[in-house]
Amino acid sequence: MNPQCARCGKVVYPTEKVNCLDKYWHKGCFHCEVCKMALNMNNYKGYEKKPYCNAHYPKQSFTTVADTPENLRLKQQSELQSQVKYKRDFEESKGRGFSIVTDTPELQRLKRTQEQISNVCDYILQ
């Protein structure tokens, strides 16, 4: 007995049969679900047992990961480790209100300029 076409439901005879996506199709019925472009075994893409052309193949989007008990535990552990590292970095840097900078020629020039300005201000105020 001849199978039925997956699209139109009519009998598919061997001369016009396309066997694809675990179904049988007439050659004319094997087309893209969206644009109806005729497809063949070389240019189709199957999604949920339906044929699509390359342009209309459904894009698979990723879903968010469910909050399983294991994922919640890992998230909590990661946050705790982050807080521990932050606190350790803070404790190490505590008490260091300033950092030592070597005198570069630019810093020396700025110091001399500030001293000159300070001296001029002192002279004017006297």
Rank of each mutant, 00 (worst) to 15 (best):
G97R: 14
K87F: 00
I117A: 11
T102F: 12
M37G: 01
K49C: 08
Y13I: 07
Y44D: 15
C53P: 03
Y13P: 09
K59S: 13
V18I: 10
A38M: 03
K27C: 11
V120M: 13
P14E: 09
V34C: 12
C121T: 02
E115A: 14
F90M: 03
F30D: 04
Y123T: 06
D22E: 06
Y24T: 03
K75N: 12
Y13D: 15
H31Q: 11
C32I: 12
E92K: 08
C29T: 06
W25C: 11
S61R: 07
E115Y: 10
Q108M: 12
P69R: 09
V120A: 15
E70C: 03
H56M: 08
F62C: 14
C35L: 04
H31C: 11
A66V: 10
A38W: 01
T15L: 11
Q77N: 14
T15K: 10
Y86P: 01
A66R: 12
N40I: 00
V18C: 04
Q76A: 13
V101A: 14
Q116N: 10
S93Q: 09
G46I: 01
C29S: 07
N19P: 04
Y44R: 00
C29I: 10
T102Y: 10
S118C: 14
V34I: 15
D67R: 15
K50L: 15
Q83K: 04
Y57D: 10
K111F: 06
T104K: 01
L39V: 07
S78I: 00
F62R: 06
Y44P: 14
Q60K: 04
D103K: 08
L72Y: 05
D89Y: 01
E115H: 12
